[in-house]
Structure formats: structure tokens, C-alpha cells
Design a protein around this nucleic acid. Structure first.
Lengths: 162, 162
DNA sequence: GGACATAGTTGACAAAATCAACCATATAGC
DNA sequence: GCTATATGGTTGATTTTGTCAACTATGTCC
């Protein structure tokens, strides 16, 4: 048995990471919460990689978050004018999201902060190790994702509490 | 440049992991939140590895959490009678925490749930890969921890917001 | 047209994190 | 011993995140 301190390690890392990022962003004067930044990045990334603009739905799936939460993140980004939405000509229900010029500028700043933070984080690790780390992480995520309970507000079982 | 999807990967994994754990615990009928479980485990682990019972302070440091939060977690565990506290003979301010018999039983059940979940998570990965993963994760955590802002409610700079 | 699925929004609420203030005890310097 | 300051712990207030459920509007299938 491995005694599984994976969870522990994971939690600590994620926490440290969030803190570091928060600091890094703050140092550069970025006033967005991490979730907003992630969303903005994703919209950009989606746009860049698929060519087509992003829908809220796509974000929800990619980020594995409740769509309610996405709606709020998007709303904030819209009101900060970092992204724009336009109705999808192919589907009247959905909105296409695109990063504005301001958004691009923000992304540049974000990248700068991240470069710093990730250099700090990756200190002493080889590129290969980092790649491995990501690969393993993704594999585990996939492993956990597959099996049972389908994501995305799936009529799930009521939460119990202490 | 590595394009750093580390953050992404990390977030998704952590999220998937929490969800999986929640499910696993629920399946076994454990009604504790993840944070409580982590705390209970830590108290036990501390006790086992150092011989001495654990203080709230030690938990806060190890879990890298605000002490206020720890106080609440501990309070819950106490009222669930999974742990007990007794005043520290060496220091009138602090309380020593020990796992009760009930707590031990709970830990057993927790381990069972975890064994399942981590088997699921680790599917297809070698033991070596897992070890590597943890090692890399810990290294990164350490890297992030060291540098600047000392932890633990350190008179920190006011948070900005959107 | 009707039944049903999907995109997105919103309200309500639960859970987690953070901050600041506070009490009691410790410790150090005098 | 007395004072100043640090530390362990608790609590209240507030913010941020995450989750559920209901609802609107549109799309799809038959």
C-alpha cells in the first residue's frame, strides 16, 4: 500500500500555487480573481486553438465547473470589458465570447506574472520533469472523470453534511 | 516557453480529486467534509510520527491554513467526538489533540474509501510514476513556500478585488 | 405542433477562506 | 516583579467559491 499522500500533496500544492499566483498577479497590479483569469485565458485559448470563438458551455466543460458559476465569471469579464459577446448565428441560445483588445493586453500582463510564478515553482525541475508531472496529472484527472457520476449539474445526489 | 498549463492541469486534477473523494466517502457513508477528514488524518499522523499529540498550531502550519479555520475544524471534530483535547501541561495556552477510539474507527473507514478512490485515480500508472508525481508536487510546493510572504495570517497586504 | 434537450441566467444557499480583533498565557528585558 | 511583546487559540464578520434548482428561450426530433 502506498499510504496515498497524493491527496495531501495535491492540496498543499494547489494551495501554495493559488497563493503564489495571487501574489504574482497582485505584484503586477492585476485585480482579477484566479477564476476570472483562468476563464479569460481559456476563452483566448479556445479561440486561438479552434479558430472559433468560445461559448460559455465550452468553458464549463473545460473547467469542469457548474454553469452557474461560469455565467457569473463571464458576466464579470464582460463588465470589465475584457471580453465581448455576440449572439451565435448558428444557435440563438448561445453567445460567442471573444477577447477584446483590452483583454489581450490583460492577458499579456497575466502571462508575465505567470512566467515569474512558474519559474519560481519549477525551480530545480527539468523541463522533462514538468512535462511528466502534467502528463501524470492529466491522466489522473481523466481516470477520475470517466467512471461514474457524470459532471455538469447532473441531477446529483443531495450533499450530506457534518 | 512552456505555456504553463500546469495551473490548469492542477486545478482540474484537484477538482476531480475532491469530487471523487467526496463520492467515495459518501459511498461508504462517511459524513465528514474533506477538510475535516484531512484534519483528522493529520492529527493521527502527527501523533503517530512524532509520538506527541498534536496542537492546533501544528495543523495550521502543516495544512497551510488560517488558524481560524483550523479552530473551526477542530471544534467540529471535537463535537463529533472523533478527537479529544486536553490542556498542554507544558503550555497553558495550547491544547493537545488526540484521536479517540471512535476517531480511529473512522480513520479505518476513511482509509478504505481512499484506497478505492486512489486506485481509481492511479489506474494505469506505475508505482514509480506515482512516487515521481508526489515528489515533483512536493518540490513545487516547497519552491513556492520558501521565497517571500510568510504564511499564517501574517499581517498581510489587503486583498484587492474585481 | 408537442415532447424533450440544451445554452444561459438567476436566486438561494452551503462551504471554504480570510481578516481582524480579542483573551489568556509565555517570555524577555529591565 | 512588572511591562512589553509574542504566541496559541477563539470568535465574528465578510468574501469568495461552489452547488442546486428553477426558469427562459431556443433548438431538435418525431
Amino acid at each position: 500500500m502506498i499510504e496515498t499522500p497524493i491527496g495531501e500533496a495535491l492540496h498543499r500544492l494547489l494551495h501554495a500555487y493559488k497563493r503564489a499566483m495571487r501574489e504574482a498577479y497582485r505584484d503586477i497590479g492585476i485585480e482579477l480573481a484566479i477564476a476570472h483569469i483562468r476563464t479569460l485565458k481559456l476563452i483566448h485559448h479556445f479561440q486561438a486553438s479552434t479558430g472559433a470563438p468560445c461559448t460559455a458551455q465550452a468553458i464549463a466543460i473545460r473547467l469542469e465547473r457548474d454553469k452557474a458559476q461560469i455565467a457569473r465569471l463571464v458576466k464579470d469579464l464582460l463588465s470589465a470589458e475584457l471580453i465581448e459577446k455576440q449572439s451565435n448565428p448558428d444557435d440563438g441560445r448561445s453567445q460567442l465570447l471573444t477577447v477584446t483588445h483590452q483583454g489581450e493586453t490583460m492577458l499579456e500582463r497575466i502571462r508575465m506574472a505567470e512566467r515569474r510564478a512558474s519559474q519560481r515553482m519549477a525551480a530545480g525541475l527539468s523541463n522533462e520533469e514538468l512535462t511528466t508531472f502534467i502528463r501524470l496529472g492529466d491522466t489522473m484527472t481523466a481516470n477520475l472523470g470517466e467512471p461514474d457520476g457524470r459532471r455538469q449539474s447532473s441531477k446529483s445526489v443531495p450533499q450530506e453534511k457534518l
